[in-house]
């Protein structure tokens, strides 16, 4: 072999070696992160099937876009609020509004109360509109409940529940921090702040920053509370949970969570009664699972990702 050819062969061999070493070193730097960098909630998505006491039946499918508010009227009709309209089931009557409601309630005579971020729109049966403005400049209304005397409105922006008379006017403030009277104030890290009425007519409000449900008299004096923290099925996880809740006729709590989407029932003392829907029954990342209960114990879950009101009945 000629010297020149030999030299070229050596040169090519050395270059191949250098290139190979470079590729090896380059790839070895690009290893995957270790186990300590794994973030998995799979363990918490699994629910013991014996805890699931409810079964899903045919959902309500509104023709509205961007559904965001749910209410069960005293007459059993289901109202769903979405983009520019409210729809009623089972007759599917549709009533126009402007905008997307953030919450909704319906009273005995069919009057609809809509939270529209910073004000309440009251729609009579003839769909005539009255407006109550929420106090404060940063109102973000997230829940409404109506009883004979008062209308309670949860305002996540101001971290207060406003108690209006049925005629409107200046509301009473509930939830202002008052250590002397045992009011620790509402800790609302994100706009999920729900209220409902107990079987005795008293106000229940979720305090999501504490994973707590708190009971108040109509004048804002606290009565009782319970809390459950934890990723396991018995507790509430992450910040701002439960994001929504509704009271059953027997005073038990139907709760819905975000982050780890699941719907459960807790007894009056906060202990877990059963699971309605496990995390694997929802799309990953869904938020805004508003819940409502009718007199027959059927549970309705507003699922914004599927744009449906999913319905659950207790297993026979």
């Amino acid at each position: 072999m000629k010297t020149v050819t030999k030299n070229w062969a050596w040169f090519i061999c050395i270059m191949v070696l250098i290139l190979g070493a470079g590729i090896y070193l380059g790839q070895s730097r690009r290893t995957e992160l270790g186990k300590g960098f794994d973030y998995s909630l799979d363990e918490y998505r699994q629910v013991d099937p014996s805890l699931i006491h409810y079964t899903e039946v045919e959902p309500l499918v509104p023709t509205l876009e961007k559904i965001s508010a749910l209410a069960v009227a005293p007459d059993g009709k289901i109202y769903v609020g979405g983009e520019d309209a409210v729809q009623r089931f089972p007759d599917a009557g549709t009533f126009p509004i402007v905008g997307i409601p953030t919450c909704m309630a319906v009273d005995d005579d069919g009057t609809v109360f809509l939270g529209m971020q910073d004000h309440v729109e009251i729609r009579s049966k003839a769909w005539k509109k009255t407006v109550w403005m929420a106090p404060g400049g940063k109102a973000y209304l997230t829940s409404i409940v109506v009883e004979d005397e008062y209308v309670y409105v949860a305002d996540a922006g101001n971290r207060r529940v406003w108690r209006y008379d049925r005629a409107g006017g200046e509301p009473l403030e509930i939830g202002k921090k008052d250590s002397a009277n045992g009011v620790r104030g509402f800790n609302i890290p994100s706009p999920y702040f729900d209220v409902d009425l107990g079987p005795d007519g008293s106000l229940w409000a979720v305090n999501p920053g504490y994973h707590a449900l708190e009971n108040y008299r109509s004048d804002g004096v606290p009565i009782s509370s319970w809390k459950r923290s934890g990723f396991t099925i018995e507790g509430f996880s992450g910040c701002c949970n439960p994001s929504h809740f509704a009271l059953m006729p027997d005073g038990a709590f139907v709760t819905a969570e975000k982050g780890l989407p699941r719907v459960k029932i807790h007894n009056q003392d906060g202990s877990l009664r059963c699971v309605v829907a496990a995390p694997n029954q929802f799309d990953e990342g869904v938020v805004g699972l508003d819940v409502a209960v009718d007199d027959e114990g059927r549970i309705y879950v507003l699922d914004p990702s599927r744009n449906q009101v999913r319905t659950f009945e207790e297993k026979k």
Binding site: I188, P189, S190, G209, S229, G238, C239, C240, G259
Partner: peptide, 8 residues
């Protein structure tokens, strides 16, 4: 940020 005690 919500300045949460239970920051995820």
């Amino acid at each position: 940020c919500g300045y949460c005690d239970l920051c995820g």
